[in-house]
Simulated assay, not measured.
Amino acid sequence: MLSRTADCLFWLGRYSERAGNVARGLAATLRMALLANPLSAADDEWRALLIATGCEPGFRERHAGLTQDAAVQWLTLDSGNPGGIAAGIEAARRNARTVRTALTVDMWEAINDTWIEFRRLDSSAIRGDRLPGFLDWVRSRTLLFNGAAADTMLRNDAWRFCHLGTILERADNTARLLDVRHPAFAAEAAEDAANYAQWQAVLRSVSALRAFQHVYHARLSPARVAELLLLRPELPRSLLACYRRVEQTLDAIAEANGGQRGECHRLAGALHGRLRQGDVDGILEAGLHDFLTGIIDQNMLLGQEIGQFYLNGRQP
Results as ranks from 00 to 15, higher is better:
L2G: 11
S3I: 02
T5S: 08
T5N: 06
A6H: 03
L9R: 10
F10T: 04
W11M: 08
L12I: 04
Y15G: 01
R18P: 03
G20F: 05
V22Q: 03
R24P: 01
L26M: 03
L26P: 01
A28Y: 01
T29L: 05
L30Y: 00
L30K: 02
R31N: 04
L34M: 14
L39I: 11
D43M: 15
W46D: 02
R47E: 15
R47C: 13
I51F: 14
I51C: 12
R62S: 15
V72R: 13
Q73S: 14
L77C: 14
G84M: 03
A86G: 06
A87I: 02
G88W: 02
N95G: 06
A96F: 01
W108D: 06
E109G: 06
I111F: 09
N112K: 12
D113G: 07
R120V: 05
L121G: 09
S123E: 14
D129V: 08
R130S: 14
G133I: 03
W137S: 04
W137D: 06
R139M: 10
S140N: 12
L143H: 12
L143Q: 13
A148C: 13
D151V: 07
T152N: 14
L154K: 11
N156H: 08
F161E: 04
C162S: 13
L164Y: 05
L168V: 14
T174N: 01
T174K: 08
R176W: 09
R176K: 13
R181T: 04
H182K: 09
A184C: 13
A184F: 05
A184S: 15
A187M: 14
E188G: 06
E188R: 12
E191H: 14
E191Q: 09
D192L: 09
N195E: 06
A197Y: 10
R204S: 05
V206N: 01
L209I: 01
L209F: 00
A211W: 00
Q213L: 07
Y216N: 00
A218P: 00
R219N: 00
L220G: 00
A226Y: 00
E227L: 00
L228G: 01
L231A: 11
L231I: 10
R232C: 08
R237W: 01
S238I: 01
L240V: 08
A241V: 07
C242Y: 03
C242A: 13
Y243N: 11
Y243A: 07
Y243K: 08
Q248M: 08
T249G: 04
L250A: 09
A254H: 11
E255D: 08
G258Y: 04
G259T: 12
R266K: 11
R276E: 15
Q277G: 08
Q277L: 14
D279C: 13
V280S: 10
D281Q: 15
D281G: 11
G282K: 12
I283Y: 09
E285D: 13
A286F: 04
T293Q: 15
I295H: 13
I296F: 09
M300K: 10
L301G: 05
L302N: 10
L302C: 11
L302M: 12
Q304A: 11
F309K: 05
F309T: 11
Y310T: 13
L311N: 07
N312W: 10
